[in-house]
Each structure stands twice: as structure tokens, then as C-alpha cells.
């Protein structure tokens, strides 16, 4: 079991970029009219966002905004990681394309991570691990995560159409060499036998489409996520490290409510953004975190789970103030 701890890591800013164009599940014609309200009630999803722009363009806008809210410059960035499964071009990586577009330093570590719903936590872990190895006083990183996946959905698929939504998020992270206190703990797990719960296939028209087995995503999430979180929380050294808020990947309400029940959490401590934004894969955690950043003053639990089947949780100590912004384009 990969439980790790990291010192000196600080989230210094979050920018969410959300497409303005939305679709309403109450008007989703592939679902029988009498069933639509039930669908919204049980999935928790009313609106889904649709991007006409590729994921790289959304990342690009997020980086520009992140530079503004943090006051950082492109020359400050030591690491650029992009977590996505929906690149327009498979070669070269989106991170390298953005490196070229923004003219990042030649020394900037730059690569993509192919990960979905658990990807934000995986990205944070990768950056936390890398930053501490860089020989400078306050190395800085950008974590871009999210997907434009709605073009992968079959127009008549009642399992995927009501759920998936496009959005991205960019998180600015800094490492303080002089800070010896633990500010992040992670528990990363993979249950590869669940690889068929969410996958892509080539259909008869030679088009790549995403498939979802909702019952298996439910079963894997309910079986593995609560135990992953419990194991991580047990590593907290002091009562101060126990999280007041829990930010889950926004899968759907059935799954998220079941996890809340298994952990016996107060629902008021588990913010949700499903209704407005749907399931935005690896962007859903930072998007949801931003809805309560002003109230969280200490440790927060983040948990991503899904495609893989992959489960990743983090206990993160947030600074007193994290600049953040959610923009629609």
C-alpha cells in the first residue's frame, strides 16, 4: 500500500476553466420524459458542460489566469504536469505543446499523466514528490488537469450522456525547503481488475467512444474508496490533521452518497458541485474545493476514484489563503 507523506508543499492558487455551453438533463431526449426528473434526483446532475475547444486550449487559458492570481511568471515554473485522457494529439504531450506555446524554461520538467477521475490526487502526489528533489529554495509547479470527453460519448448512450461533462483546472503548488512540517499525506491504490468499469472502444463507424458500467463503478467505489480514506486518516499524527471537509471526485450522487454513508460523514462537510457541472473527471476535485476554500482553514481530505480502477486520497494542509477563480469561457 503506497501511503506517503510530504513536507513543505503548499497549494498557492487554483483556477477552474468551465465551458459556458451547458446541456440540461431535464431536456435530454434520449431519456424518457417521465424518467428525467428521477435521473436528475439520483445522479445529482442537472447540467453538463460542453467544450467546443480542445483540452489544450482550456489548459492554456487556465495557465494564463493562474499566473495572474498568483503573481508568478512563466520563468518561475519548475514543473508543468498535465493530467488528461483526452488530448487532441497523442504526440507530443500536451505539456510539451504548452511548454512551446508559453516558452517555459528549458529546465522545466514537463510531461503528461494519463489518468481520469483519480488524476488530481495522482498529479498532486507526483508534484509533491518532484518538487522536494529540485535544488532551489522555493520551486514551483503547475498542475493542469481535466478532460474534454463529451465528444467521446455515443449520442444514444443513456449511461454516459447524462453524466460526463467538460472542464479543466490549474493548480499552482510551491515547495518551501525550510518548512519541515508535514503538509500532505497520500494513499494511492489501483484495482486493475476493475479496468472494464470505464473504458473506450472503437465502434462500427471507427469512432472512439467511452463506455461506462455504472453498476461496477458503484461497486468498486463503495468497496474500495472508504477503506482507502480510513487507512489514510489513520496516519494522521495529531487531531489537528483530521479533516473538517471532504472533497470527493464528483462521480454521481448515488456513488458519492454511498461513500458518505460508509464513512458516516456529516453531509454538510462534503460539498457537491454535481448539479451545476456534472462529472468533470480529474477537474471535479479542484472545482468542488474552490466552493469552500474560504471556509477551510486547516486540513482537507481529497479523494479521487474511477477509471482504472484507480483510487487516490490525500490529506492536505491548506494555507490560510488560497487565491482561486472559476471562469466560464
Amino acid at each position: 500500500m503506497a501511503i506517503t507523506k510530504h513536507r513543505g508543499i503548499k497549494i498557492q492558487g487554483i483556477v477552474n476553466v468551465i465551458p459556458e455551453l451547458s446541456e440540461d438533463n431535464l431536456k435530454l431526449t434520449i431519456i424518457d420524459e417521465n424518467e428525467r426528473q428521477k435521473l436528475v434526483n439520483h445522479t445529482g446532475i442537472r447540467y453538463r458542460r460542453i467544450s467546443k475547444l480542445p483540452v489544450k486550449n482550456l489548459f492554456s487559458r487556465g495557465i494564463k489566469e493562474a499566473m495572474e492570481i498568483t503573481g508568478w511568471t512563466i520563468d518561475d515554473i519548475d514543473i508543468l504536469i498535465c493530467v488528461t485522457q483526452t488530448t487532441e494529439l497523442s504526440i507530443p504531450s500536451v505539456a510539451c505543446q504548452l511548454h512551446g506555446d508559453f516558452n517555459f524554461n528549458q529546465q522545466t520538467i514537463c510531461y503528461d499523466i494519463n489518468s481520469g477521475c483519480s488524476g488530481y490526487v495522482y498529479g498532486l502526489h507526483t508534484i509533491a514528490s518532484l518538487l522536494s528533489t529540485i535544488n532551489s529554495k522555493n520551486p514551483r509547479a503547475l498542475l493542469c488537469c481535466g478532460d474534454v470527453s463529451t465528444h467521446l460519448l455515443s449520442s444514444d448512450d443513456t449511461s454516459t450522456q447524462p453524466i460526463f461533462s467538460d472542464a479543466i483546472s490549474v493548480t499552482a503548488i510551491e515547495f518551501n525547503q525550510n518548512d519541515d512540517t508535514i503538509t500532505a499525506r497520500f494513499n494511492l491504490e489501483t484495482i486493475g481488475k476493475g479496468q472494464s468499469a470505464i473504458y473506450t472502444e472503437i465502434n462500427a463507424q471507427n469512432k472512439k467512444i467511452m463506455k461506462l458500467n455504472g453498476i461496477d463503478v458503484f461497486a468498486y467505489s463503495v468497496k474500495y474508496v472508504p477503506q482507502n480514506i480510513k487507512a489514510l486518516i489513520e496516519t494522521a499524527q495529531t487531531p489537528d490533521e483530521l479533516p473538517e471537509n471532504y472533497i470527493f471526485h464528483q462521480a454521481n450522487k448515488l456513488i458519492n452518497d454511498a461513500i458518505v454513508r460508509k464513512l458516516n460523514l456529516n453531509i454538510d462537510r462534503v460539498p457537491q458541485t454535481l448539479s451545476l457541472y456534472g462529472n468533470t473527471a480529474s477537474a471535479s476535485i479542484p472545482i468542488t474545493l474552490c466552493t469552500c476554500l474560504n471556509e477551510i482553514k486547516n486540513w482537507v481530505l481529497l479523494s479521487g476514484f474511477g477509471v482504472g480502477f484507480s483510487v487516490a486520497s490525500a490529506l492536505i494542509k491548506l494555507p490560510d489563503f488560497v487565491p482561486h477563480k472559476t471562469i466560464e469561457i
Binding site: I31, E35, K38, L39, H42, T158, S159, G214, I215, F218, A219, V222, L254, I255, A258
Partner: peptide, 13 residues
């Protein structure tokens, strides 16, 4: 249906 089957399985759980 896929939705009702999922709701049913989640309610059993």
C-alpha cells in the same frame, strides 16, 4: 433500465 438497475443495486447496498 441501466439507470433503474443502478438505483436498485445501490438501494440494496
Amino acid at each position: 433500465s441501466s439507470l433503474n438497475a443502478l438505483i436498485y443495486i445501490s438501494r440494496i447496498n
